[in-house]
Lab assay of single mutants.
Amino acid sequence: MDVFMKGLSKAKEGVVAAAEKTKQGVAEAAGKTKEGVLYVGSKTKEGVVHGVATVAEKTKEQVTNVGGAVVTGVTAVAQKTVEGAGSIAAATGFVKKDQLGKNEEGAPQEGILEDMPVDPDNEAYEMPSEEGYQDYEPEA
């Protein structure tokens, strides 16, 4: 019985440690998101679009440190934060509304985080759909 109880105690310690790591990862992701939003706020009209992409990228980098179902929630929060940063930029006159959601080359930025393969159960990952990809044929 002692062996059984000791095993359960060790398992509990492992769960607590994993929860603490997840909590730490979420806190880091939130900190990076805040950094990115402050970065966007300090940019001029020309830099705002690039700044919004930076927020998304920093958040995406930190999301990889967070495991399990938390990833889905962090990704949703990050996307809403990026959308909010863009709205703030438009409201303050840093950028025109028609410039939001495009990178410096004018290509749409939507789907940055949505296409990231995420499995809350950590069982399997699927690649994003290939609808947006084109076949590449090298020139002879």
Score class of each variant (00 low, 15 high):
residue 1 M to L: 00
residue 1 M to K: 00
residue 2 D to I: 01
residue 2 D to M: 05
residue 3 V to E: 01
residue 3 V to D: 02
residue 6 K to I: 02
residue 7 G to N: 13
residue 8 L to T: 00
residue 8 L to N: 00
residue 8 L to G: 00
residue 10 K to E: 05
residue 11 A to T: 15
residue 12 K to L: 11
residue 13 E to R: 13
residue 13 E to Y: 14
residue 17 A to K: 13
residue 17 A to F: 13
residue 19 A to M: 09
residue 20 E to V: 02
residue 20 E to N: 04
residue 25 G to Y: 11
residue 25 G to V: 15
residue 25 G to K: 07
residue 26 V to N: 00
residue 26 V to E: 00
residue 27 A to P: 00
residue 28 E to T: 13
residue 29 A to E: 01
residue 30 A to K: 04
residue 30 A to F: 09
residue 31 G to P: 00
residue 31 G to K: 13
residue 32 K to Y: 04
residue 33 T to N: 00
residue 34 K to H: 04
residue 34 K to S: 13
residue 34 K to P: 00
residue 35 E to C: 15
residue 36 G to P: 03
residue 37 V to I: 13
residue 38 L to I: 08
residue 38 L to A: 05
residue 38 L to F: 14
residue 40 V to G: 04
residue 40 V to T: 09
residue 40 V to C: 06
residue 40 V to A: 10
residue 41 G to V: 08
residue 42 S to G: 11
residue 43 K to F: 04
residue 44 T to G: 06
residue 46 E to R: 13
residue 46 E to H: 11
residue 47 G to I: 11
residue 47 G to W: 09
residue 49 V to T: 09
residue 50 H to T: 15
residue 50 H to R: 12
residue 51 G to S: 08
residue 52 V to C: 01
residue 52 V to H: 14
residue 52 V to F: 04
residue 52 V to A: 11
residue 55 V to Y: 15
residue 55 V to L: 11
residue 57 E to C: 12
residue 59 T to V: 04
residue 61 E to K: 07
residue 61 E to N: 01
residue 62 Q to N: 09
residue 62 Q to R: 10
residue 63 V to M: 06
residue 64 T to N: 14
residue 65 N to Q: 03
residue 66 V to H: 03
residue 68 G to A: 15
residue 68 G to L: 10
residue 68 G to T: 10
residue 68 G to Y: 15
residue 68 G to N: 00
residue 69 A to W: 14
residue 72 T to Q: 09
residue 72 T to R: 09
residue 73 G to S: 01
residue 73 G to K: 12
residue 73 G to C: 08
residue 74 V to W: 03
residue 75 T to Q: 14
residue 75 T to P: 01
residue 76 A to F: 03
residue 79 Q to V: 12
residue 80 K to F: 02
residue 80 K to Q: 08
residue 80 K to M: 06
residue 81 T to A: 01
residue 81 T to V: 02
residue 81 T to P: 02
residue 83 E to P: 12
residue 85 A to W: 05
residue 86 G to P: 02
residue 86 G to D: 02
residue 87 S to I: 15
residue 87 S to M: 12
residue 88 I to W: 13
residue 91 A to F: 05
residue 93 G to E: 08
residue 93 G to F: 10
residue 94 F to A: 07
residue 95 V to R: 03
residue 98 D to R: 09
residue 98 D to K: 14
residue 99 Q to G: 13
residue 99 Q to I: 06
residue 100 L to S: 01
residue 101 G to F: 15
residue 102 K to Y: 15
residue 103 N to V: 03
residue 103 N to W: 08
residue 107 A to T: 12
residue 107 A to D: 14
residue 108 P to C: 06
residue 108 P to V: 07
residue 112 I to A: 03
residue 112 I to F: 07
residue 114 E to K: 14
residue 115 D to S: 11
residue 115 D to L: 10
residue 116 M to V: 00
residue 116 M to E: 07
residue 116 M to F: 09
residue 118 V to I: 09
residue 120 P to R: 13
residue 120 P to Q: 09
residue 121 D to Y: 09
residue 123 E to V: 14
residue 124 A to K: 06
residue 124 A to M: 15
residue 125 Y to M: 03
residue 125 Y to C: 04
residue 126 E to C: 07
residue 126 E to R: 12
residue 127 M to R: 11
residue 127 M to L: 01
residue 130 E to C: 12
residue 130 E to G: 06
residue 131 E to W: 02
residue 133 Y to Q: 06
residue 133 Y to S: 05
residue 136 Y to Q: 08
residue 139 E to N: 11
residue 140 A to S: 13
